[in-house]
Structures are given as structure tokens and as C-alpha cells.
Amino acid sequence: MDDLAGFLRTRRSRVDPASAGIPTDSRRRVQGLRREEVAHLSGVSVDYYVRLEQGRATQPSEQVLDTLARVLGLDDTEREHLHRLARQPRRRARTPGGRVRPELLRVLDLVPDAPALIVDHRLDVLAGNRLARLLFGTPMPGLNTARHVFLEETDGGLYADWENCTLDVVGHLRLAAGKYPDDRRLAELIGELAMGSERFRRLWARADVRARTHGRKPYRHPLVGLLELHHENFALQDASGLELLVLSAAPGSPAEDGLRLLAGLDADGAAAATGVNPEARTS
């Protein structure tokens, strides 16, 4: 699903030659750096770098990878992704099962005033609390946020900052594809998104990676209006590959009032209060 050669090519194309000390003129037709220029700046032979971009050179050293990361201007997330892609032939991570422990479901129950979800590396929502179900307007198990963003919602829908949201989703899936190259279900999801969304195809071709940790996440709810929320992603320190995502509102903000209003809209009774499919407790 992802490969070292393609990642190097896309990163090379975005580097401004001037920033690397390479003079340019109007006759230059290459976007970014040439292969020969990357090789020279990295201290490797042109032949070796060409073989890297063609997928014919395997197991580059840590020193070479760190040098390439510096020359290509990679951030920490991209640098880690580069190293992971280079290690794939030797060590491929096992796809996590994503089992939701009962203790995690109890944690969701302890977050009554903010939407909280448990998601896997494919962005499948495995469980969510009551406010999460009300925010997304759908039962939590069965929702995939990548599919929701690209195939079910559009600019002007639930995601108030839809374009940036699409960047986050694609960047996350790129990271997941690098970590779990043998995940058939992830490959099928990426194929489905590529078939159904022209924007997804364009963003996927850029090979950008993003780590979702925290930040602004605005939603436009059809009944309570704009909710300016803050997301915190807590990666679970086990082999499950799961994350706990909490969407909070600043104290005294309009978003806090909006969440209170959202909570008061629920009229489905006790079964809707959990927002969790009982089957998720044993999945």
C-alpha cells in the first residue's frame, strides 16, 4: 500500500532548490530537487539513490536515512515514517486485532460532558459515549470516520473545517499503511475511498503523513450549530492499535453551552445513553 520509493519521490518534489543552496533559472523544468541533487546533498552515489527510488535498493543504513530526512526537510512524523518504510522487508508489524477491553468502555462512561470515542488504526469507531453518538447522529460501532468524511459528508456538512479534516484523515491512513502493509481491510478501505472520492485520490497521491495528537476540531451540528471543540488523542500503550479520542469544549465557551444543548436532545431512552453496541464488549 505504501513504499519507500514513492515516498522519496514525493518528498523530493516538494523541496525548494533555493533552500538547499542550488541556483535555478527559468530553464529548470523539474519540480523540487533532481535525483542527482539529492544524492549529492546526501553524500551517496547517484546510482544508489536512483535504485532507492526505483525500489531496487533495500535496507539503507540508519545514517543514510537520517541524512535523506535532513536533505528532504522531513518533520519528525515523516522521518519516523521513512525509517518504518525502509525496515518493511525485514520486519513487518502484525495487524492489531483492536479488541475493546471492558475497562476501556468504563472509561467512556466516565466522560459524560464531552464526546469520546475509541477508534482503531483504520478509523473504525469501535465504541463511543452518548455525546459522541449525538454529535455524529449515528450509532458508534459501524462508523468509519474516513468513509464518513469523504463519502458521506461534504464541505458544508458536519465537519466545519472539512478540507483540513480530509488532510488529517489521509495523513493518518498513510501512517497506518506504512505500519501495517499487510492489512487487507485497510487496503480495501483505501481502495473504496479512492474509487468514491476524487479529492481522496489527489491527496493520497501526495503521500503526506500526519500524526493526530491534539488540536482544533470544529463541527457544524444541524440542531445546535457550530461547536468549536478541541481533540486529544490518547494512543493506548498496548498492542491493540487503538486510540481514545476526546472532544472537549473550553469552559464558559459557546461550545460548552452547545454540548449541554446537544445532551438535552436525546429522547431515545436508556438504550441510547451508552452509545455502545453490546457486541463491542466482546469483540
Rank of each mutant, 00 (worst) to 15 (best):
D2R: 14
D3P: 01
A5S: 14
L8H: 05
D16L: 04
G21Y: 10
G21K: 08
I22W: 03
I22F: 03
I22G: 04
I22D: 01
P23T: 14
D25R: 10
R27W: 09
Q31I: 08
R34D: 07
V38G: 05
H40L: 15
S42H: 06
S42I: 10
V44A: 10
V44R: 14
Y48T: 12
R51Q: 13
E53V: 07
Q54T: 10
G55H: 13
R56S: 00
Q59S: 15
E62S: 14
Q63V: 14
D66N: 13
A69F: 12
T77N: 05
R79A: 08
L82N: 00
A86Q: 00
Q88N: 04
G98H: 04
R99D: 13
R101Y: 11
P102E: 08
P102D: 06
L104H: 08
L110G: 11
L110A: 15
L110C: 14
V111M: 13
V111W: 01
V111K: 01
D113G: 11
A114S: 14
L117C: 06
I118S: 01
D120H: 12
H121S: 15
R122S: 09
L126V: 10
R130M: 03
A132Y: 10
L134G: 04
L135V: 08
G137R: 11
P139F: 10
G142V: 09
A146V: 03
V149W: 00
E152M: 02
G157S: 03
Y159L: 04
A160R: 12
D161F: 02
W162N: 04
C165E: 15
V169W: 07
V170S: 02
L173V: 03
P181V: 09
R184L: 14
L189R: 09
G191D: 13
G191V: 06
G196M: 10
E198I: 06
W204V: 03
V209Y: 00
T213V: 12
T213G: 01
H214R: 15
H230F: 09
H231V: 12
L236W: 13
Q237F: 06
L247P: 01
S248T: 15
S248V: 10
A250C: 01
S253P: 00
P254I: 00
D257N: 14
L259C: 11
A263R: 07
G264I: 01
G269V: 02
A270N: 01
A272T: 13
A273P: 05
T274W: 08
G275R: 06
G275F: 04
A280H: 09
